[in-house]
């Protein structure tokens, strides 16, 4: 009995609302930080290659720019979902 009581006492801070809030804040930070890595690299690749294409063929710059924005929009969506997860964890 006493062992159980000690265990419950030891676990008690881990179930407190403050601890849960703190963990949610840490998780929110990680969620956004990790979600930003991939899209950051991805947008760099998209824009870099678009600039290269425009430099090689300036006459196709209009089409390349349109396609570049489409590519950025699709890549960026992942980072934004990470941002939404951050908002949900932090504030909801």
């Amino acid at each position: 009995m006493s062992i159980l009581a000690t265990a419950a006492e030891a676990v008690e801070p881990l179930t407190s609302p403050e601890f849960k809030n703190a963990m949610a804040a840490v998780g929110a930070g990680f969620a956004y930080g990790l979600a930003a890595i991939g899209p950051g690299v991805g947008i760099g690749i998209v824009v870099g290659n678009a600039v290269q294409a425009m430099a090689r063929q300036p006459e196709s710059a209009g089409l390349v720019r349109t396609t570049m924005f489409l590519g950025i929009a699709f890549t960026e969506a992942l980072a934004l979902i990470g941002f939404v997860v951050f908002i949900l964890l932090k504030f909801a």
């Binding site: 929009a73 699709f74 960026e76 969506a77 934004l80 979902i81 941002f83 939404v84 908002i87």
Partner: peptide
């Protein structure tokens, strides 16, 4: 979903 979230999250950020 991504159409809505893209616009919403960009403006919220």
């Amino acid at each position: 979903f991504s159409l809505a979230v893209r616009l919403f999250a960009n403006m919220l950020a």
